[in-house]
Design a protein around this nucleic acid. Structure first.
Length: 419
DNA sequence: TCTGGGGTCCTAGGACCC
DNA sequence: TCTGGGGTCCTAGGACCC
């Protein structure tokens, strides 16, 4: 069988890079971007990494370094990041016959049947992405997706490679794998790496040489795929057509703990509305609604967490219907005298709109599409959350912390920079 | 004081069937 | 003294990814 060729394009410190595009003064300075609610650090510039700031740490734990070293801190601006991502992905699409957008800052492409010199071809792509968007990327090339991940790490770590690393005709792949910690292999997370290391499997080369039966027992079927891919046997194809999703969840931590049912209902209403708007945008109806509530899990003294799920008597994308259901579920699981920190609404059991099983009353139920599409159009034009459900329309006590957020430079006309 | 959000997949175990 | 075998489906929990 002909060897396949994949490339993985990964934006460097993506959120930080987005901020730098619109504020070049940030170049060469330590910069970090935060998760929602200004909780954890989820993107770091090279300079911030060099200060020892780890991925995913809560901001308050590195406060000293941040203050002492003048680290510049941004609240996350997903509107901006999503739009910049779209631009990067569009450029990548022009360079490859097929693309899998794997996350907001990553994409796989397949180069198998392209009659080009892979390395110089992706270098050209890298140059164009930087020129058109200002976003620097790293690219790994290899014969399996798992190996492109390894290649990508090397491209990021070794500056002499100028952003591109190919393992396609690498003389000593085994040496590369030996230098790769087992925990850094794609598909090996915290728990698995602990187990593997306890069994003497420290690096990717040792993992590659494990027996299949042992791997199957240790890491289940997906582990077997990972190991095969380390052996240059491609098991994971490019997933171009994003399969219709199976669930859609909107969840937030609250800016401060909530005690009253009223306040929580307000938040749940917003979550249910947003989730419904999202599935409506994908032309799906949902048949199952779940709500969950929980207190702060870091405070074990008075911890409470619960969820409740119900199946609707018919699938719908009607905001009012889903909000009503979500509020009923909220009342079921709510308990007095707890400080709630987080809640969420999960929709699932999807149907493509129109493929639901019809019954005698279907027509009567579908009286809302016109109203829903009017709402969607208004929100599209004037900004999401322009039209809300009445219970949301007070000052939300649950609103998140977002101390230092930049503007929507690329999606709001009045936020466009003046030069 | 302060600890993200959004997904997918696999497995084990229980309920149920004949 | 002694209690089958083979199957499906569902769910909760745990693992992984970014």
């Amino acid at each position: 069988m002909k060897k396949k060729i994949f490339a993985l394009i990964d934006c460097n410190a993506f959120y930080v890079s987005c901020e730098r595009v619109f504020n070049p003064k940030l170049n060469n300075k330590p910069v970090v971007a935060l998760s929602n609610n200004d909780g954890c650090i989820i993107a770091r510039s090279k300079e911030a990494k060099a200060l020892g700031i780890k991925m995913g740490v809560p901001l308050f734990k590195v406060k000293e370094i941040v203050e002492k070293e003048n680290v510049i801190v941004f609240s996350s601006n997903y509107t901006l990041y999503a739009d910049m991502s779209r631009r990067v992905m569009n450029i990548i699409s022009e360079f490859a016959p097929s693309i899998e957008v794997y996350s907001i800052d990553e994409a796989f492409i397949e180069l198998t049947n392209m009659n080009v010199d892979y390395e110089s071809y992706v270098r050209q792509m890298r140059k164009v992405i930087l020129q058109y968007t200002g976003i620097p990327v790293s690219i790994g090339i290899a014969s399996t997706k798992t190996l492109t991940k390894v290649a990508n790490h090397i491209a990021k770590d070794d500056e002499s490679l100028e952003g591109v690393c190919s393992l396609v005709k690498h003389e000593n792949l085994d040496q590369v794998l030996e230098d790769t910690n087992v925990a850094d292999v794609w598909g090996v997370g915290r728990q698995l790496s602990k187990k593997l290391i306890a069994n003497g499997v420290f690096n990717a080369k040792l993992l590659k040489n494990c027996e299949d039966a042992w791997v199957r027992k240790m890491m289940s079927v997906n582990g077997l795929k990972t190991v095969s891919e380390l052996r240059e046997i491609s098991c994971l194809d490019l997933e171009e057509t994003s399969a219709t999703r199976k669930s859609c969840c909107t969840t937030r931590s609250f800016g401060k703990p909530l005690v009253n049912l009223d306040d929580i209902e307000q938040a749940v209403t917003t979550f249910a509305r947003r989730a419904t708007e999202r599935i409506r945008g994908e032309n799906l109806t949902a048949s199952t609604v779940s709500v969950f509530l929980r207190t702060n899990p870091f405070d074990r003294n008075r911890y409470y967490s619960n969820s409740s799920t119900t199946t609707l008597s018919y699938p719908t994308y009607d905001t009012m219907q889903i909000v009503k259901t979500a509020l009923q579920l909220t009342k079921i699981i709510f308990r007095e005298n707890y400080k709630y920190k987080k809640a969420g609404v999960l929709l699932s059991g999807f149907y493509e709109k129109g493929t639901e099983t019809k019954d005698l009353f279907s027509e009567a139920r579908y009286r809302s599409p016109k109203l829903m599409s009017a709402v969607d159009q208004i929100n599209e034009r004037y900004g999401s959350d322009t039209i809300q459900i009445a219970t949301e329309c007070q000052i939300g006590k649950w609103k998140q912390k977002r101390k230092n957020c930049t503007q929507s430079y690329t999606t709001q006309l009045d936020n466009v920079l003046l030069i």
